[in-house]
Structures are given as C-alpha cells and as structure tokens.
C-alpha cells in the first residue's frame, strides 16, 4: 500500500492545475462533473471501497484513504466546503469501514487505511467570522472522523496566496 502520500483536493479554476500537481503526489480536481452520493452504503456492504456509479469518483475513497496528508482547497460556502468539494468527500466514505469504534470519546467508523497525519484546509472567498468559526469546528470534527493526527485551517483572501500555503 502506498502511504506517506500527499493528496490535494481542490475546486479552484483549472489554471492552477499544474501548480497544484507540482505540490503533491496526487491532485484531485473537484470540477462538479459527477453524481452525488446516493446514500446506499454499497461502498461498505456490496463492493467495498468502490462506488456503484461508474464515473471518475468510483474509487476516489482509495486515493483519499491512502493519503497521509490531505490538503483541501475550497471556496467557502456557509462555513463549510463548496458543493463540488463536498460531493467528492461524500463519495469517499469507503475509506472507512462499516464497523464502529470510539475516537475522541465519540462513536466513529474504523479506518480502512489506518490513521493519517495532517488534514489541512485552505479556504478562499467571502467569509464571515461566524463562518470561520464553523469551518474551524468542522475541520476539527473531520480530522477526528477520518483519523488525522493534526488539522489546520488557513483562510486566504486572494488566490494569489494559494501557492505559498500548499
């Protein structure tokens, strides 16, 4: 299994593709050209770690699951991920298993690929203070849920700052 891999999931314009690709082992463009999760749990119970929908996200949980460092670049939407990024994350729940365990004193699913190091989220776009607080809380929860040892949220005012924070 490939570990210690840095994966960047991003929703910024395709003009940033080359720069982002140079900063990681695997770049995932959230371009919105795929279906949303149907909530069937088939990626747990029928075809493990694989979605029944045959599009480019069919095995995305295997890429995200193996990332030791996951960096998400997203536009702010109400203090959470953009719909395009959230779509990819929703389709990636096969990185965990249907079995339950306790992490952070709360119930979560066990991890198919084990624990990870860093979850870093870079947020751009118009954002209020309340939304910033929600985002910090959300990423903290995501890190526990997905088994990341550390998490970090960076708010940038301009995409010109993006290369410097990746």
């Amino acid at each position: 299994m490939v570990k210690n891999e840095k994966v960047i999931l991003y929703d910024v314009d395709r003009q940033y593709d080359d720069m982002i690709a140079s900063k990681c082992d695997h770049a995932l463009a959230a371009d919105g050209k795929y279906a949303h999760c149907q909530g069937c749990f088939g990626c747990w119970t029928k075809h493990p770690a694989e979605c029944f929908m045959k599009d480019k996200l069919q095995q995305v949980c295997r890429i995200i699951g193996q990332a030791n460092e996951l960096v998400i670049v997203t536009e702010n939407l109400y203090g959470g991920y953009s719909a395009a990024v959230k779509n990819v994350l929703d389709r990636a729940i096969g990185s965990s298993t249907p079995f339950s365990t306790y992490r952070g004193k709360q119930m979560h699913h066990t991890l198919r690929y084990g624990k990870h190091d860093l979850l870093k989220v870079v947020v751009y776009g118009d954002i209020t203070e309340a939304e910033k607080n929600t985002f910090r809380y959300l990423v903290e929860r995501n890190a526990i849920n997905e088994g990341h040892a550390r998490s970090e949220v960076v708010f940038i005012e301009d995409l010109a700052e993006l290369e410097g924070v990746l």
Partner: peptide
C-alpha cells in the same frame, strides 16, 4: 455492527475484500 454484517452478507461485500486496503 451486527446490522452491517448481515447486510454485507446478503449484498456479498463480505466476500469481496470487505475490510481490505484496496488499491486504486
């Protein structure tokens, strides 16, 4: 856990590398 074991048994996932670390 029992619920998911039963569902995975009926849907066949339990025989298809249910908890395996699958590669892309």
């Amino acid at each position: 856990d029992i619920f998911f074991i039963i569902i995975s048994l009926f849907e066949g996932g339990i025989f298809r590398g249910w908890l395996a670390k699958k590669e892309p």
